[in-house]
């Protein structure tokens, strides 16, 4: 049994959350951090945009400010996501190398490895979730993440339940994704004014299992699923001193900066 770290952090603002994910990944790439599965939530609720996504009319920045919703640019690609508080959303993050997973370096194999665990955990909750091998609705990137299901992403009842994205450096990677526990439809429509019907293509655990599970319940189910599906042991831990220092640097120099939010920074 391989030991991985299980990291469950308190709800944080967007800049801190993205800095933690990147610090875990940079540490794993350097060999100073263990492979890690992290579960977390957002405080305040936050819209995250993809690394190369323009911050344009598709996300209503004024509405974000009015509603007290944070804004952050992710290190990963794809489209915008609204991360509600822990009562409606859980975000997972996996930082590892292809060797940690025991799969080849094929990009999609890492997605598949993680999706297998997620599907197992969601189904343990009763969600009837399934991995979509080839993706649906391919074409130009939509502005709203849950408008399209990519390869090895997860649906329930034909609608997207988990939206995931990845960053890579050689064979090390960071993958994170949003698991919808519930949804605030009014707020989604306010934040993504050009998305015709944000609810048309998404679903939630609340819909899939007939009640809304708690953040802690989903954390336990997904933790068990990673261990059972892949024969790893997730050992609860915290951030190391090096990781904490890197988080502070990344917030100050990158994720907390208005210029990085407005346009992607150079590496």
């Amino acid at each position: 049994m391989k030991n991985w770290r299980l990291l469950v952090t308190e709800p944080c603002d967007g800049a801190t959350n993205m800095a933690i994910d990147e610090a875990l990944w940079r540490g794993r790439h350097a060999g100073t951090s263990p492979p890690t599965v992290r579960f977390f939530a957002w405080d305040p609720p936050t819209v995250s945009v993809g690394y190369g996504q323009p911050l344009d009319r598709h996300v209503d920045v004024a509405a974000c400010r009015r509603l007290g919703v944070g804004l952050v640019r992710r290190p990963t690609g794809g489209s915008a996501i609204y991360h509600d508080g822990p009562e409606r959303e859980l975000t997972y993050c996996v930082t590892a190398t292809a060797d940690d997973l025991g799969v080849g370096g094929d990009l999609l194999e890492t997605y598949r490895w993680i999706a297998r665990a997620l599907v197992r955990g969601l189904n343990a909750l009763g969600a009837r979730a399934e991995m979509i091998p080839t993706g649906r609705g391919l074409g130009p990137d939509p502005a709203f993440c849950f408008a399209r299901t990519g390869a090895f992403e997860i649906e329930a009842g034909g609608r997207k339940l988990v939206g995931s994205a990845q960053r890579r450096l050689g064979t090390s990677f960071l993958q994170h994704g949003a698991v919808l526990l519930g949804v605030d439809a009014t707020r989604l429509r306010a934040l993504f004014p050009t998305t015709r019907d944000p609810l048309a293509t998404l679903t939630t655990l609340e819909t899939a299992i007939g009640r809304r599970p708690t953040f802690d319940e989903v954390t336990r189910a997904l933790t068990d699923a990673f261990e059972t599906e892949h024969g790893v042991t997730l050992v609860p831990g915290g951030l190391s001193a090096d990781e904490t220092a890197r988080v502070e640097t990344l917030v100050g120099e990158r994720y907390g900066r208005a210029t990085f939010l407005a346009v992607p920074a150079r590496p």
């Binding site: 990963t76 690609g77 990519g150 990845q166 960053r167 890579r168 450096l169």
Partner: peptide, 15 residues
């Protein structure tokens, strides 16, 4: 890293 390339699957650093 000298740059970044983003595809529909991932963001990748360029070495």
């Amino acid at each position: 890293a000298f740059g970044v390339v983003e595809s529909v699957k991932a963001v990748s650093d360029l070495f």
